[in-house]
Design a protein around this nucleic acid. Structure first.
Length: 183
DNA sequence: TGCACGATGAAC
DNA sequence: TTCATCGTGCAC
């Protein structure tokens, strides 16, 4: 497995989002290595994107989005779930990619079809917010061999409040995957 | 200090 | 369509 380097994340968010599909999310804790194959993501472009958390400026919660690329932005939502993002583009740009679903590959017992379930199954919570994804216990890697992927583009989920931004096709998922949250 | 609401998921 | 459940952001 080849761990993704900083340069991978320091690019256009829509490109990073689509290229994250098929990659392996790896989390090692208490001697257990969990691996999930990313099959669904959403791109949040920056302050001009009304659906993005960064649209209302820097706050204690979203400050990681304003930092350097290649870090995890983990936040608590609806009083019971965590959602994980990957920070993209140069420092100060405040953009990220939300991981919405992974395919269980190793040591993943419960369901992973949805951002909240994904974090629960992979053991991801607020303690991993701001964690560097170039670390050795939490990172994303490319699969052993290059594969042919068919990507579907759809509007993002749960952002109807964002006006015209709610209609843009910034949600991407693997057409052939049965692990997508909402096909 | 109070309060409306949310990048969800499950039940009905 | 409704509800569980609570941190966050902003109004007051």
């Amino acid at each position: 497995m080849r761990k993704l380097m900083r340069e991978f994340y320091d690019r256009d968010t829509r490109v990073v989002a689509q290229e994250l599909l098929g990659k392996f999310l790896v989390r090692i804790a208490d001697g257990v290595e969990r691996i999930g194959r990313i099959v669904e993501v959403e791109a949040y472009l920056g302050p001009h994107d009304r659906a993005s958390h960064s649209a209302r400026g820097l706050t204690p919660r979203n400050q990681v989005m304003f930092g350097p690329p290649g870090h995890a932005y983990v936040y608590f939502i609806y009083g019971m779930y965590y959602c994980m993002n990957v920070v993209t583009e140069r420092e100060g740009h405040a953009s990220a990619v939300l991981l919405r679903a992974v395919e269980p590959l190793q040591n993943v017992a419960s369901r992973t079809c949805g951002p909240g379930l994904l974090c629960r199954a992979m053991g991801i919570d607020k303690h991993l917010n701001a964690h560097d994804l170039l670390s050795d216990d939490f990172f994303i890697a490319a699969p052993p061999q290059r594969e042919r992927l068919v990507i579907v583009k759809r509007p993002r989920i749960g952002v109807d409040y964002a006006g015209v931004w709610a209609k843009r096709h910034l949600r991407f998922y693997l057409k052939s995957s049965p692990f997508v949250s909402r096909p």
